[in-house]
Design a protein around this nucleic acid. Structure first.
Lengths: 144, 144
DNA sequence: TTATGTGCAAAGCGTTTGCAGCTCC
DNA sequence: GGAGCTGCAAACGCTTTGCACATAA
């Protein structure tokens, strides 16, 4: 994930290439799980002094442009995850190590048919969130 | 949805039967869509003076006990919906009139298989949220 | 009687905003 | 040079909490 990639990405999104934006992208690219804005902030190299509002602003821009996925958890905080996979997909989150993995299977067609048949309605959008144990954590849990 | 039903429900949940709790249940039973705490508050008969914190407390209890479904929307507010359907199911929300309808189809088995095969992981829980147009609103949208 | 429920006011706390000054292009 | 960024501090707004009083059982 070379740095020039991030510059390209920013240019494609019509955002100016600034040290803060690069720092946020770099920090997020290192992560395998959803992070809160404050967590992202703490992961940004301390050398790059930046305010928390700036982190929020940058994350918002990236979420708006689609390369960052934003979820709200039960603690009412927003969590962010950099996802460069452009194809439609869903996420599986390990409840133990928090790692995020892509699920390419999408059952929208089945759901659309169900909505059409039973409710006589039209499915427009869907959110599917999957939780469980990843290949690394599942065996360990069994031992407990 | 006679009142004694609500008393029964409260007793089953080991909650004291109070006018406030009955008022919240009555108000929610009249609704067909998710409401914020403040909206629930405004729907409660004004005669039953009650504070907003009380509404939050009651909704929390009901959500905890499972007869109220709680979702967080993009505006970061909590929304509540009374759902007495005890069988596992998902919800379809009409983006136009906001009506909530139950979807009995659950694709957890397919998703579980996908998680097992591709990720070698174990699916534990899933959230499926469906949005679209209900049978009443879909035809109207087509005209536009 | 006593464990529980409730009103009121105040605090909490992620997140957003206003605005002055700075940077990228 | 000028549009777009960012820091700082302050505001925002939904939700929660503390505590005294009231109420169901």
């Amino acid at each position: 994930m070379a740095e020039y990639r991030f510059e390209e990405i920013l240019r494609r999104l019509k955002l100016k290439v600034t040290p803060r934006r690069l720092a946020v992208l770099e920090a997020m690219a290192r992560e395998t799980s959803f992070l809160s804005a404050e967590q992202v902030w703490s992961k940004v190299s301390p050398a790059r002094k930046m305010g928390l509002p700036t982190v929020y602003r940058i994350l918002d821009e990236l979420a708006l442009s689609g390369i960052v996925t934003q979820v709200i958890r039960d603690d009412r905080q927003l969590y962010y995850f950099l996802c460069l996979n452009e194809k439609h997909h869903h996420h599986f989150v390990c409840t133990s190590c928090k790692k995020v993995e892509d699920i390419d299977l999408c059952l929208a067609d089945e759901l659309r048919a169900e909505v059409a048949q039973r409710l006589k309605g039209t499915l427009v959008s869907h959110i599917i969130q999957l939780q469980g144990l990843c290949s690394h954590c599942a065996p360990q849990e069994q031992q407990k």
